[in-house]
Write a protein that binds this DNA or RNA. Structure first.
Length: 612
RNA sequence: GCCGGCGUAGCUCAGUGGUAGAGCAGCUGUUUCGUAAACAGCAGGUCACCGGUUCGAAUCCGGUCGCCGGCUCCA
């Protein structure tokens, strides 16, 4: 998390408070100021939208010539000049639509040609009839020249440009007009603004600090995973330390699932395309698939992008009775999705990843309880991982969209099951219309990474569609066939994404149970190495969380200070120092990652002090 | 995929048209050391790749690949 002292990001109320704040208005006005600078520096530039956002503001523009990063300083400079003019920012309301149109065409274009109003006119058309249309106007006559900027805008703004003092333009990106890639791509310029220089500096400093927690950096420094161009983009190689961490997490969840009546299943990496034709994924998922494979008999196979159809095949392999339900098939299933080249981000967004997947086949009567059971498991997982900074989102159907499948009463039942389960669990969630899967509503956990980006982690989805497509049945008490409901769920989401996020949350200093190396033994001199190896073996024979303790002896011929420094850098939770005194007295010198030197104690005392 | 940026040793980075450098890591030797970097030496690069300009290219130009920020999409 970026510890942003200006806006606590989590929680709906915090966001609402931000939108009411002076800072929010300041940033909005900074966006306008930037637009004014752009109209002066790039005559004919077409302006689109320029809102304040969580950590600053942006403006989307369509410039007559490309804007590059090296242009930002002179845009900033022009903004500073303009700000000093002390232009009053005045709100004006158009009397009617015709006047609004006239203002856009005659005034906001500032004599640069009506075509510069292209996007503003479209925005005007999107404002519902009868709603007030307002403009914000800032101007100053200076040195025989009128400097003016007027923009179609809902506001609110601050009163004068001279209060826009502490800002910085951050970056340039392409952004589609109205978020649709089929539309023209505009140039988006990001900036940030604060009330004081200290806050701006603090924010920039925080960004620098956040970069140090980037999982891609720590993944390399701690030897967790790697990528190789010879393997391919987005295809991670797990190094021994990352792999053991991952196994530890998998072990933990596997046990929790066994306790809750899940049955493990294992399915192949590829399948005939027919399977995905049947599931319908071939239509909705086509552009996400790796290129197809064809065998000598001209049968087409695809690398699996998801596990559900396989689990359905297993369900369908025999007659099911209502007495068999619920059936819970669990698989740590590795899937491959051909993510667009620009969207691959370390292990947070990879092309191959492993879902902690399971599919529950339930009767309508069981839906509610099973959903609660899944939410309970997710809470257990979050607690164990020590994650508290997350948001729970209930994705429901967007009533205006036609992309969904299934009957309305099913949707309503499923949505109710989800919200009731969340209420019953006391989960603090928000409802987000339009964020449902196309086949059903879902509950997602959203977590931010070090750079403040949202990632969807764990998910629970209610599905009426696949049972329908595969014609799934169970025989009910009435001896008649009935259709089961499926729940798709993944508490971690994917091992890759969760480990990436955990790495950033903990800045690489994983809790003891997860640390790849839990204990480093540091013999002081060569003559202590033998005792160190013996101690190492003794610890490895000790179970922690029913796994052998992970111990490493640092037998390098380095000074103790050097060994401590290196193992601290590797974020090893405990170092056990072994020298003449210890061997004589039957103790070890214990040093903790967090608290430093804890003094000498017996190995038993040390083991007894380990976190439960 | 699109917009913008970056690519020099395993890592972090110097090097603006004239014989490729530093620190750390690695290896060798010396040191055997009690709580955050012992000392010395050695080795290590097709300057991402391909093409062009030039007497001469890490450096200038074009293309490709990879990575980073964003858009779109997602676990």
């Amino acid at each position: 998390m970026i510890p942003d002292n200006s806006i606590p990001w989590s929680g709906k109320h915090a966001m609402e408070a931000y939108e009411q704040s002076h800072l929010y208005r300041l940033r909005h006005s900074a966006a306008h100021l930037m637009a004014q600078a752009l109209t002066e520096l790039y005559p004919g530039v077409k302006l689109a939208i320029g809102p304040p956002i969580e950590n600053g503001f942006y403006y989307d523009v369509d410039p007559p010539e490309p804007i590059r990063e090296e242009d930002l300083p002179r845009i900033e400079k022009r903004m500073k000049e303009l700000a000093k003019l002390d232009m009053r920012i005045e709100r004006k309301v158009a009397a009617d639509r015709d006047e609004a149109r006239r203002i856009i065409l005659e005034e906001t274009t500032l004599g640069q040609g009506e075509e510069t109003a292209l996007y503003k006119l479209q925005l005007l058309d999107a404002i519902p009839e009868g709603e007030e249309v307002s403009f914000f106007d800032q101007q100053r006559f200076t040195n025989g020249k009128l400097r003016r900027f007027i923009d179609l805008c809902r506001g609110p703004h601050i009163e004068t440009t001279k209060d826009i003092k502490h800002f910085k333009l951050m970056s340039i990106a392409g952004a589609s007009w109205r978020g649709d890639v089929k539309n023209k791509q505009l140039t988006r310029i990001y900036g940030t603004a604060f009330e004081t220089q200290e806050e701006l500096d603090a924010y920039l400093h925080m960004l620098e600090e956040a970069k140090k927690r980037d999982h891609r950096l720590l993944g390399r420094e701690l030897s967790l995973f790697m990528f190789s161009p010879r393997v391919g983009p987005g295809l991670a190689l797990w190094l021994p330390k990352g792999a053991v961490l991952r196994e530890t997490m998998t072990d933990f969840l596997r046990k929790e699932q066994l306790k809750r009546g899940y049955d493990p299943v294992i399915t192949p990496q590829i399948a005939s395309i027919k399977l995905y034709e049947k599931s319908g994924h071939i239509l909705t998922f086509k552009e996400k698939l790796f290129p197809f494979m064809e065998d000598e008999e001209k049968e087409t196979y695809i690398l699996k992008p998801m596990n559900c159809p396989f689990h359905i095949e297993i369900y369908q392999s025999q007659m099911r009775s209502y007495r068999d339900l619920p059936i819970r098939y669990a698989e740590f299933g590795t899937v491959h999705r051909y993510e667009q080249s620009g969207e691959v981000t370390g292990i947070l967004r990879a092309r191959g990843f492993t879902q902690d997947d399971a599919h529950l086949f339930v009767t309508p009567d069981q839906l509610q309880d099973e959903f609660i059971g899944v939410v309970e498991l997710m809470q257990t997982v979050l607690r164990k991982l020590g994650l508290t900074d997350f948001r729970a989102r209930v994705g429901t159907k967007d009533p205006a969209s036609s992309k969904y499948v299934g009957h309305d009463d099913n949707w309503q039942a499923a949505t109710e099951a989800i919200t009731k389960a969340c209420d019953a669990m006391g989960l603090d969630y928000f409802v987000s219309p339009g964020d449902a899967a196309f086949y059903g509503p879902k509950l997602d956990l959203i977590i931010k990474d070090a750079l403040g980006r949202d990632w969807q982690m764990g998910t629970v989805q209610v599905d009426y569609n696949l049972p329908e497509r595969f014609d799934l049945e169970y025989i009910g008490e009435d001896s008649k066939p009935h259709r089961p409901i499926m729940i798709h769920r993944a508490p971690f989401g994917s091992l890759e994404r969760m480990i990436g996020l955990l790495t950033e949350q903990y800045a690489g200093a994983f809790p003891f149970w997860l640390s790849p190396v839990q204990i480093a033994i540091l013999p002081i001199a060569d003559r202590h190495v033998e005792a160190a190896e013996a101690l190492s073996q003794r610890l490895k024979d000790t179970l922690f969380d029913s796994r052998p303790l992970r111990v490493q002896v640092d037998a390098r011929r380095e000074t103790l200070g050097k060994k401590i420094r290196d193992n601290q850098g590797q974020k090893v939770p405990y170092m056990l120092i072994l020298g003449d005194r210890d061997i004589e007295e039957g103790t070890v010198g214990v040093r903790s990652r967090e608290q430093g030197d804890l003094g000498a104690m017996t190995v038993d005392a040390f083991l007894g002090s380990l976190p439960a």
